[in-house]
């Protein structure tokens, strides 16, 4: 099997691509506004290149410690997915509905099986946010279909 490349190689390449993409955007900018972005992006690409080189070196020397790092572990990625779903539902379902669903989902995911705890947490958070943000600070939380 081929040796696994160090993740720094990919990061370096990603940084360079990102810099190039952002650099192209400076074309539309007026002269004064473009100078600093160009400088910053060139530096970023340069660092990307250095990290790429460092990654190649690491790959050669085969650093076992780093090889074991799994960037996309199942659990954090699942939590992230739940968060993304939650955040994208806010405008649709309203803040309180989606927050309640989110708390239930995440607590179940964290292997909390006691229904009483889940319900109490959920009501506590909702009430706290309602009283502090909505009543006290007049923050307009998004309303959705239900609330």
């Amino acid at each position: 099997m081929k040796k696994k490349l160090s993740h720094d190689v990919y990061i370096g390449i990603l940084m360079i691509i990102f810099s190039v993409f952002m650099y192209l955007k400076t074309g539309d900018m007026p002269k004064g506004a473009a100078t600093f972005p160009k400088l910053v992006l060139t530096t970023f690409a340069f660092f990307g290149f250095l990290i790429f080189l460092g990654g190649m070196k690491k790959t050669k020397n085969f650093n076992t410690k780093e090889q074991n790092i799994n960037l996309f572990q199942k659990n954090p990625m699942s939590v992230l997915l739940i968060v993304v779903i939650y955040v994208s539902m806010i405008n649709l379902l309203g803040f309180f509905t989606s927050t309640s669903l989110f708390i239930i989902a995440l607590m179940l995911f964290f292997r909390e099986r006691r229904i009483k705890t889940i319900v109490l947490t959920l009501l506590g958070v909702d009430l706290f946010i309602y009283l502090l943000f909505v009543v006290q600070l007049n923050v307009f939380l998004p309303r959705g279909l239900l609330f």
Partner: peptide, 19 residues
């Protein structure tokens, strides 16, 4: 009222009484 509210909010976050 504000103090009462703050106290209330403080408690409710821990005890979570059913409102």
């Amino acid at each position: 009222c504000l103090i009462a509210l703050f106290a209330l909010t403080g408690c409710s976050s821990k005890n979570a009484e059913t409102p």
